[in-house]
């Protein structure tokens, strides 16, 4: 069971790769969240010009494969380190998806809720802060968790621009232990699976905690 010994001795390398992957993940999700929210708000509340602009940006980001955008950003005429390039490119792609999540959630806040708040004399910023956002968060956690796990796996794409994340570490390990390719990749698969599970479990618990009767629950 040579392979198990190798995998155990390489655990620190996998841990390093995991940390880099999580760094990319956190960065891209944050960028995607901010941009996605901005696009969603622009598409719902913006005037015709803003709306058109936001929709166009979203559609183009949605249509470009992540790898293509990754290389485009990486080969921009100025120097970007690979991690930053990955965060920017994957974050831009994610924003297109996240904007759809937020748009759907905001639009499903029922108009009666806003009207009732208005009738009570609540100002517009307060309506957004106390009514729209709390309800929107609850409505978006479910789909957002899907986006999270999808992006967790897509951090592996950063491999192609040389980010030393999990896949790159696996490649190194395969290279200097001469072989064991299938076993190493299988182990990497288990690693990703566990990370995905931990992540989705965390968001599931968060959803449970925030859940109140009357909101639809994920199965």
């Amino acid at each position: 069971m040579e392979i198990i010994r190798i995998l155990i001795s390489e655990l620190p390398q996998f841990a390093k790769g995991t940390l880099v992957a999580l760094e990319v993940l956190a960065g891209l999700l944050f960028l995607g969240l901010v941009l996605g929210l901005a696009i969603a708000l622009a598409e719902i509340f913006g005037n015709t010009v803003v709306k058109f602009f936001a929709t166009t940006v979203r559609k183009f980001l949605w249509a470009i494969p992540q790898l293509v955008l990754l290389f485009l950003v990486f080969y921009l005429p100025f120097d970007l380190n690979p991690v930053l390039a990955a965060i920017i490119a994957l974050g831009l792609c994610s924003s297109a998806f996240q904007s759809q999540i937020f748009r759907g959630a905001i639009l499903s806040v029922q108009s009666g809720q806003i009207e009732a708040a208005k009738a009570m004399g609540l100002s517009k910023p307060k309506i957004i802060f106390y009514i729209v956002i709390p309800q929107m968060i609850r409505l978006s956690i479910g789909p957002w968790t899907n986006e999270f796990s999808s992006e967790l796996k897509d951090t592996s794409l950063a491999y192609v621009v040389g980010v030393v994340e999990i896949m790159r570490q696996a490649k190194y390990i395969i290279a200097y232990t001469f072989g064991n390719t299938a076993a190493v990749y299988l182990f990497v698969g288990v690693l990703y699976f566990i990370l995905t599970r931990i992540g989705t479990y965390f968001f599931y618990r968060l959803e449970e905690r925030l859940w109140v009767p009357g909101f639809e629950k994920r199965s």
Binding site: S149, S156, M167, Y185, F193, T196
Partner: peptide, 11 residues
């Protein structure tokens, strides 16, 4: 569903 496509391809 819990593993990346790139990994599946490499495997």
């Amino acid at each position: 569903r819990g593993t990346p496509c790139l990994l599946q391809l490499f495997f």
